[in-house]
Nucleic acid binder design. Structure first.
Lengths: 196, 196
DNA sequence: GTCTATAGAGAGATAGAC
DNA sequence: GTCTATCTCTCTATAGAC
């Protein structure tokens, strides 16, 4: 259901990358087209040779990010694995995708509500679809008896992704935690439980 | 370190409550003084008889909310309890505080970055102090051997609070989950681990 | 494709009557 | 304390020269 994603001129790519960083840091509304132009060293009006509107920039970032997350998760979801291994792999993959798309990811789950009605509704569905894969694996695990029978899969998915998505607030590539450290800690907290 | 909180006229209280709901729903920047006035059935200019600026409204909401969370957590933190019981109680209390302050809570951990420099820095410290209580209890639990020795307390605190704070996105008083349901699910996910 | 210049809308805030 | 009227600023976006 994802819209077709066209190849980009390098200028368009530059604009999108600057916009991702800016929208992520300041938020969509507080990041102005003037800010964006300044970050690129051009005049604001020049942006409109590449994108029809500010919202079009947000949309382009949003669908590319949704595609990255969906495509990245696809092989794991389609693989023939036990539910507990599959969920573990999906968490690991989600963390890797967060890190690979750290600026865009803020748009994936925070800034997309600024999209206009129709796009907003389409996008909400993409996010529901993404989350639904987690819900489904948890349900499989419950049936198989590897996850506790008392859980509500939707609640768990929400809480689990909220934990990981919060990474965009604190993650720094130069920080003390490697991807692997983060993945192990998330397993520990979200799968194995904190108590020894 | 919290600023003094003055008693309010009922009109001020009305404005703060409408502003909380509005800031929570639309975000600080996208919620205009015109929106706020309309929600209250008055003209925008009238708001300035009660608050000097839009930011003063945000600040008033922010410090009241910080105080609610700090005061609410204080008796549990000061109590003489084992670390695992204390952490459990702090999680429960944090959930109760989220529900009691569901609109203001969005400001407590999302909208406060719109505060001006000095207030922003003061507020950041309040949030660090709040989180530090969780870090401290987790450290105690590690020393006592009831929490796994391999955890990073700051990471766990961040991920744990992110999970709970995400409630402001989905929690509805009329929804199917009671406070107690939510608390039990958070224990299960965050303390006991998902795997059976 | 980038520029200068500016239109047009909406923001926060103030002055002053009542 | 609330109103009408309005100031000033900044925003997104467009027109048209180069």
């Amino acid at each position: 259901m994802l819209a077709t994603i066209k190849p980009l001129t390098s200028r368009k790519q530059e604009i999108l990358e600057a916009a991702q960083a800016l929208f992520s840091r300041k938020g969509y509304t507080d990041a102005s087209m003037r800010d964006l132009a300044e970050a690129l060293g051009i005049e604001p009006a020049s942006l409109y040779s590449h994108f029809k509107s500010k919202e079009d920039i947000l949309w382009e970032i949003a669908i590319r990010c949704a595609k990255a997350f969906n495509d990245g998760q696809e092989p794991i979801f389609s693989a023939s694995l036990t539910p507990e291994i599959k969920l573990r792999n999906m968490i690991d993959r989600h963390i890797e995708l967060m890190i690979d798309n750290i600026n865009a990811s803020a748009i994936f789950f925070r800034e997309w509500h600024h999209l206009s009605k129709e796009r907003h509704d389409d996008y909400a569905q993409m996010i529901i679809d993404y989350e639904q894969r987690f819900v489904q694996v948890i349900e499989e695990g419950m049936k198989a008896g590897v996850f506790k029978a008392s859980v509500r899969p939707k609640f768990i998915t929400s809480a689990l992704l909220a934990s990981i998505n919060w990474m965009h607030k604190w993650y720094r590539p130069e920080g003390s935690m490697t991807i692997s450290d983060i993945q192990q800690h998330m397993h520990l907290l979200l799968l194995d439980g904190l108590q020894s």
